[in-house]
Nucleic acid binder design. Structure first.
Length: 431
RNA sequence: UCCUGCGUAGCUCAAUGGUAGAGCAACCGGCUGUUAACCGGUUGGUUGGUGGUUCGAGUCCGCCCGCAGGAGCCA
């Protein structure tokens, strides 16, 4: 293979001549000197071309380049404190691969609707580049966390006849002569695979036809969901804490330039180290009331409640033992207090709220079936799920972490829509 | 689904019911260290659609469409 050079590794080639292949992200000209901001997907670098060095013809051609034209730029790498990245390229030659049409996205302000309409181009911008790189790092680290601890990756189906969450939020589709639904979670199948393989996880999209329109919701989002046999609520909290701590550490270590582009307060992220406070729902309600926030025991936390609660702490917090009424049918009851469940959600600090939800699952077939009937679920359809309690039932649990919500917090973003390349939202299916 | 707001040049926004403007982008010219560069000039409009009120509607009213912010629900 021929040798390729990338901006990300440019520091290894100081004082050598290299050719970079990329796109023109920005340009400033001063008559006899040109500053070209080149991006190649691994980073951004300033290329400096002076008329004296490159000759009149190349200089004139470069001066006319339109933004987002694709280029091969050859030049010598220099360390230079004046350059934003610390390095710049002294241009010797430029090969224009394609001269771009007039580019619609400028450095000036744009409205959200315009940027979302041009999402396929917006992702070229430095902020979007940084977010998508951090997202990828989070996913790699999450998978590595589970892979290195003996979990088996078992993918769960996208098409399913079952409803995990409420049926009103299901996407229905044709499945030959019957109807099927798009998955909202791999959890029920995870419970089956955990009984086969002990420790499992799945990673994939979840689709919810919720008519929700907030800064924390996507119609299509990605979840990583572990499920562990012979695990109780305390185990689940330990795993959540260790996972999140490792993800934060990995992002801080490997994505510092991207966090800098986002102007993320890394001090705040570094503070998110274990141990994470663990408080019961009941204690959390007390804390809310003490903070002067009206809230009644038995309600589910709303966006405002989570924000108030998470701002009381500098680290993520684990809120456990939610009331039966606000949690799904599969949550195990607390043997010490049957009004609450062995559930646990993690709330991110800085007002970001819920990023993980999970808990210990119901173990007894009869109680589980009774609960399903109470909620009006089609029990026949779920016989396979009840079988898991009929053939060697064990205490077990797991959780789901929403990748986009996690990335929203890590990047310090005001809205979840920038954390996935092509967000699907209530009023947006395109591009 | 509900509440609120907004649709005017490619973009971000002005315009008392009375001749649709500015900045940026684009284009032309100038400038040897710019960081959203700067300076001078030029071009650019079916004011989201539709019906109405009025001598006259970007502006007021009805309906429709689109988008944004928030709520509920959730990861």
């Amino acid at each position: 293979m021929r040798e390729r050079y990338y901006i990300e590794e440019i520091g290894r080639h100081v004082d050598r001549e290299v050719t970079l292949e990329g796109w023109l992200a920005g340009k400033r000209s001063s008559g006899k000197i040109l500053f070209l901001q080149l991006r190649d997907g691994t980073g951004f670098i300033q290329c400096v071309a002076s008329r004296a060095d490159v000759g009149d013809e190349t200089f004139a051609a470069a001066d006319e380049l339109s933004i987002e034209s694709s280029l091969r730029v050859t030049g010598t790498v220099h360390a230079d404190a004046r350059a934003p990245s610390g390095y710049e390229l002294s241009v010797a030659g430029i090969e224009i691969v394609h001269a771009a049409d007039e580019y619609p996205i400028s450095r000036k302000e744009h409205g959200t609707a315009f940027l979302m309409d041009n999402r396929h181009l917006w992702i070229r911008s430095s902020r979007q580049f940084a977010i998508l790189r951090i997202r990828a790092a989070v996913i790699v680290a999450a998978r590595r966390y589970f892979d290195s601890r003996g979990y088996t990756l078992v993918d769960t189906p996208i098409l399913t006849p079952n409803a995990v969450e409420g049926t009103t939020t299901l996407f229905e589709t044709k499945y030959f002569d019957e109807s099927a639904y798009l998955t909202q979670s791999g959890q029920l199948y995870n419970e089956a695979t955990a009984m086969a393989l002990g420790k499992v996880y799945c990673f994939g999209p979840a689709l919810r036809a919720e008519k929700s329109k907030t800064r924390r919701h996507l119609i299509e989002f990605w979840q990583i969901e572990p499920e562990i046999a012979y695990a109780d609520l305390e185990d689940i909290m330990d795993i959540q804490e260790e996972l999140v701590a490792e993800l934060i550490r990995h992002v801080l270590e490997t994505r510092a330039p991207e966090l800098a582009i986002l102007e993320r307060d890394t001090e705040a992220l570094a503070k998110a180290a274990p141990p994470f406070p663990r408080l019961s729902y009941t204690e959390a309600v007390k804390r809310l009331n003490e903070a002067g926030h009206a809230f009644e025991w038995g309600e589910d936390f709303g966006a405002e409640d989570e924000t108030v609660l998470s701002k009381l702490f500098e680290t993520p917090i684990l809120v456990h033992r939610y009331p039966r009424m606000v949690k799904p049918f599969y949550m195990e009851d607390d043997p010490d207090d049957e009004s609450v469940t062995l559930s646990v959600d993690m709330l991110a600090p800085e007002g970001y709220g819920e990023i993980v939800g999970g808990g210990q699952r119901a173990m007894d077939a009869e109680r589980l079936e009774r609960r399903m009937r109470e909620e009006g679920m089609p029990v026949d359809e779920y016989q396979w799920y009840l079988d898991l309690r009929r053939f060697g039932s064990v205490p077990h649990g797991g959780f789901g972490m929403g990748i986009e919500r996690f990335v929203t917090w890590v990047c310090g973003l005001p809205h979840i829509r920038e954390t996935i390349a092509f967000p699907r939202m209530l009023s947006r299916l395109r591009p």
